[in-house]
């Protein structure tokens, strides 16, 4: 890599909320900008160049033309980071995967539907090799900064493979199950410094499942608490509708 590594940000089907999180880094951003050069970032700068080293790819792949573009990014980038739930697991976009595609297109584009072909949402790793996944809807600022520091220093960044419960315990939160609520934190990948349970809300799984989630046990526990199979599946497909273990339950 040249003196200053070049970063680029790209967006596919997404709300661009993850890019916004980068801008929200404010204080740290100044220090970060000293160490890198940003050559493509629609949310923040007008300049666009294609000589990037690290590409942050936000959004899921839902259109034929996205495929070509994401492959091109892969070819140019030395490191490709899937950025946010849409990109790492399909995210909110994958809710449409469980509905008739024509109906979805019609709902969004009306009589223009034929002009905008789209298909069920796919995470980026379905199409190209992904070097690092930064999960979450939106991504966590602190995780993003940690990952940047590691990438720049040539150090390995380890994405947590333990559930939200771990960080919930570190924060000494009262478990929501003890309060008669439910929570997907037992099978959801940590890294968010348990935003939701800390503020009394159930984890809805925006960071996707851990590597070996005990999904059966989760369904059992939730059904024991009176939820129907349909309700449980709905909780899980809010973000992780592309996950094999979940789609198999569907």
């Amino acid at each position: 890599m040249s003196a200053k590594p070049k970063l680029a940000f790209f967006s596919f089907a997404s709300c661009e909320g993850c890019q916004l999180q980068v801008i929200n880094c404010e204080d740290e951003l100044v220090a970060l900008l000293g160490a890198v050069e940003i050559v493509n970032f629609r949310e923040a700068i007008d300049e666009r160049r294609d000589d990037y080293d690290i590409a942050f790819v936000e959004g899921s792949i839902t259109r034929p033309e996205d495929e070509h573009e994401v492959k091109e990014i892969r070819e140019r980038a030395k490191i490709l980071v899937a950025f946010g739930a849409c990109a790492t697991i399909g995210g909110i976009n994958a809710i449409k995967n469980f509905q008739p595609q024509e109906k979805v297109s019609q709902y969004v584009y009306g009589d223009q539907a034929a002009t905008f072909p789209s298909y069920p949402a796919r995470p980026v790793h379905d199409l190209v090799k992904v070097d690092l996944k930064l999960h979450g809807c939106p991504i966590s600022k602190s995780e993003f900064l940690e990952a940047c520091k590691c990438l720049l220093a040539g150090k390995q960044f380890t994405v947590p493979n333990y559930p939200v419960c771990v960080t919930c315990k570190l924060a000494e939160n009262v478990c929501l199950y003890q309060k008669g609520m439910t929570c997907l934190g037992v099978v959801t990948r940590a890294g968010c410094d348990p935003m939701c349970p800390t503020f009394g809300n159930k984890c809805i799984g925006c960071r996707g499942l851990i590597d070996h989630p005990n999904v059966n046990a989760a369904f059992d526990v939730l059904e024991d608490l009176g939820l129907t199979l349909e309700e449980v599946t709905k909780d899980f497909t809010m973000f992780d509708g592309c996950h094999k273990e979940i789609t198999e339950k569907k």
Partner: peptide, 13 residues
């Protein structure tokens, strides 16, 4: 083992 989430809560507390 079939019921366990491997969530670590038991150890952490």
């Amino acid at each position: 083992g079939r019921r366990c989430f491997s969530c670590g809560s038991c150890n952490l507390v």
